[in-house]
């Protein structure tokens, strides 16, 4: 009997939802387990990093890594799994695009640490101690992972073969991706394993979208009683569907909530946020700057809305630090 292909799972900066998504395969997971040999899965199985280090290069067929890269440890693990695997797959929005943790790129390391360890109302830290990478106590010293200034998507740290989109990937997306990966013919490197079409294609409300849409106000879901049949954009809700890859079968829209863009852009788009921005702004009514601004002001947080899952993978990656203060800091040193 030939050896079963080896598969690994790892979890970087993420919420753990993608791990749940694997379990969400339900009975189908048994087929997966039957078909493969899971050699590393910290969340479920007791393999250690040293076990992976001991494996020969390229001995794992596929490593599924979810989560963004936020710490030095995550980067190390990404490099390690890369070297041990034939295929490295970014699983879920955080690994694929940076995801929700990627919104931290609107801040820098110092302000994040300050907010979390010193300023948060729930923080009790009278000594004002902050995380460090070296710690000495009682004659023992310990090295800890460092916290990066910028969150990165997996492919910004190591070469990634495929991405499975979604926050988290739906069982259907994950199952289809698995079938593709275990199949005979692999798609081109870099492929996102989901349909290369925007979500409207599979949206149940597609027919209710008017051909001539002119937006006079963007509304937030809590501001109206949402019609369960009608296109959400036509109701004034900011739906990312037109700029977001299909595959999830419009789960959020079926749940009467607008798409927030977790599957990322199609392959033809470099920057999901710029594209939804362009399409929505084009449809805004008004020809005078003041009128346009009034309508656009109903989008309170453009970056948080348009780049909710894709900020690290976007063209600008992160917020630019205040150069004036940088110059000052450089001068003071």
């Amino acid at each position: 009997m030939p050896e079963k292909p080896k598969v690994a799972f790892y979890w970087c900066a993420s919420c753990g939802g993608c791990e749940e998504a694997v379990v969400d395969l339900a009975e189908a997971i048994l087929d997966v387990i039957a078909a493969v040999d899971i050699v590393f899965w910290p969340v479920a199985l007791d393999f250690k990093r040293k076990d992976v280090e001991a494996m020969p290069e390229g001995s794992i067929l596929v490593s599924f890594v979810n989560g963004a890269i936020r710490t030095s440890e995550q980067a190390e693990m990404a490099h390690l799994l890369r070297s041990k695997s034939k295929l490295l797959v970014a699983l879920g929005a955080c690994a694929h695009l940076g995801g929700i943790p990627g919104l931290a790129n609107l801040f820098d390391r110092e302000s994040i640490l300050k907010a979390v360890y010193l300023e948060a109302p729930s923080t009790v830290n009278p000594e004002g101690s902050l995380p460090t990478t070296h710690h000495k106590d009682d004659g023992h010293s310990v090295e800890l992972p460092g916290f990066y200034n910028t969150v990165q998507a997996l492919n910004q740290v190591v070469e990634v073969d495929y991405s499975v989109p979604g926050c988290p990937p739906t069982p259907r997306i994950f199952r289809t991706a698995l079938q593709t990966l275990l199949g005979d013919e692999l798609p081109a490197k870099g492929t996102v394993l989901a349909p290369d079409c925007a979500l409207c294609d599979e949206c149940p409300r597609k027919d209710s979208k008017p051909e001539q849409l002119s937006i006079v106000e963007f509304k937030r879901p809590q501001q109206l009683l949402i019609d369960e049949q009608k296109c959400l954009l036509a109701q004034g809700l900011l739906c990312m569907g037109p700029a977001t890859r299909a595959g999830c079968e419009a789960l959020c829209v079926r749940g009467n909530m607008p798409c927030s863009g977790c599957c990322g852009p199609t392959s033809r788009v470099k920057d999901q946020g710029a594209k939804i921005l362009s399409s929505l702004a084009s449809l805004v009514a008004g020809k005078e700057a003041a009128e346009i601004d009034r309508i656009l002001a109903t989008i309170p947080d453009p970056v948080g809305t348009f780049y909710r899952y894709s900020l690290p993978a976007s063209l600008l990656h992160r917020k630019q630090l205040d150069r004036a203060s940088l110059h000052e800091a450089a001068a003071s040193k």
Partner: peptide, 9 residues
């Protein structure tokens, strides 16, 4: 219109 929204981004 795009420019006004882009400037906010």
């Amino acid at each position: 219109r795009r420019f006004h929204l882009l400037k906010r981004v």
